[in-house]
Computed example of a mutant assay.
Amino acid sequence: MTDHQQLKEQERAGDPRLTAWLDEQRAAFPEALGSSPYDLPRRWKFDGPSLDHLEQLVLRSFGSREDFEENKGTALVQVAAWYLGEVHNQLYGTQWQCAPEPGTDSGADDDSGACADTGACADADSGAPYVIIPYERIEDFPPPADGSDRDGRPRCSPLGELSALFTDGPGRHLRDTLDRYEEPDEPREEEEQEAREREYADNPRLAAWLDAQRAAFPEALCASGDASPGTWDFGASSLDHLEQLILRGFTTYEDFEENKGTASVQVAAWYLGEVHNRLHGTQWQCAPEPDSGAPYVIIPYERMDEYPPADDDPAQDGRPMCTPTGELSALFLRGPGNHLRDTLAPYSRGSAQ
């Protein structure tokens, strides 16, 4: 994209011919659509469902594409085109543009390539107004995956879309023109992450580890003699006892690391994670492949919105996460001011807390 393209689009968006056309359709809207047989105020709300009513109005008003083309200049057709474009504008932030002179280009020959693969955007009347994502948002819509440098922004020529209702068969609907604004990369990444987290939360490796720690818990901690009955109630204060148990059981970081695979360490890690789960609704996750990282606890994916990310967070995921074995190990590295109960503090940032 170039500065030339941006200037061209600014010219098209502010063209006096476009301004006059928009003013005319706004003024004609109440009579052209409001007095139709489909005149119910709730139907013309500039939303997706209202396009179904617009579609039926156009199909019932004209018997064929030829009939439609002959009446393209009427108030009904022009206002219908304006309404379709306005729905795009209000729902997805597009803007009106048109070539400065009637009968010149419709934008398809510029260096944006915005018209490609977006449906009936190349209207027969090449100077017809169209709607397109503003140039300032071009990065929101990456180029096509075919390796070309074409502009990926969706674009719609409403007159072309109305005309296509008569040529593309019953499977074509005006509401479908809104699907173009779905940004495929972002939703796909979210869907992949959600699916990955479901797998990480429910896999044989994690299930076997959890079962082993639950079975070993009574002997590894409850029978340790380090605390009185009732100490291991999965409350925040019990983490102080867990901390002392670890610090007394190992003398150094190296000693702890050498014994990380023992039942006492693994059950201690499980217990720490379970405190998080029971107090703050986290869940266990780990990669299903062997030797691919220790289990950890994290706020479930469906609660992500409760923990907005920091502005400088590259992952854009503000959910607290705790790897219990790492926190136990850190007791020997961070000094006497570090405590296991501090691992609960990040949950206070949640909007639901």
Score class of each variant (00 low, 15 high):
96 W>E: 04
26 R>L: 15
334 R>H: 02
132 I>V: 05
251 T>F: 09
124 A>S: 07
64 S>L: 08
62 F>R: 02
133 I>Q: 09
348 S>P: 02
105 D>N: 13
171 G>Q: 04
42 R>S: 00
11 E>M: 13
169 G>I: 00
38 Y>C: 04
181 Y>M: 10
10 Q>T: 05
95 Q>Y: 02
100 P>D: 06
127 G>H: 00
143 P>C: 03
246 I>G: 11
300 P>Q: 05
68 F>V: 06
270 W>Q: 01
261 G>N: 05
15 D>E: 13
258 E>A: 14
344 L>A: 07
234 F>L: 12
223 A>M: 12
134 P>G: 03
216 A>R: 12
241 H>M: 11
325 T>I: 14
252 T>R: 11
85 G>Y: 01
103 G>F: 06
176 D>H: 15
207 A>N: 14
271 Y>K: 02
10 Q>F: 08
125 D>I: 01
205 R>G: 12
218 P>H: 11
59 L>S: 05
284 W>G: 10
293 G>I: 00
328 L>V: 00
346 P>N: 14
79 V>P: 04
312 D>Q: 11
319 R>K: 01
207 A>T: 13
40 L>H: 10
350 G>Y: 02
160 G>Q: 00
290 P>S: 03
308 P>A: 06
286 C>W: 07
136 E>W: 05
41 P>R: 13
324 P>C: 09
193 Q>R: 10
254 E>F: 04
106 S>T: 05
217 F>N: 05
22 L>V: 14
113 G>A: 04
316 Q>N: 03
280 H>D: 08
165 L>P: 00
52 D>M: 00
160 G>H: 01
23 D>L: 15
38 Y>A: 08
255 D>K: 06
206 L>T: 05
92 Y>Q: 12
203 N>I: 14
24 E>W: 03
184 P>L: 01
341 R>H: 14
28 A>Q: 13
137 R>N: 04
106 S>K: 13
227 A>M: 04
110 D>A: 00
189 E>K: 10
317 D>N: 10
269 A>S: 02
23 D>C: 15
126 S>K: 04
353 Q>Y: 14
242 L>W: 10
147 G>E: 07
244 Q>E: 14
181 Y>Q: 02
192 E>Y: 04
353 Q>D: 15
234 F>Q: 03
173 H>V: 05
18 L>V: 04
346 P>D: 13
6 Q>D: 11
158 P>L: 09
178 L>D: 12
290 P>A: 06
337 G>V: 08
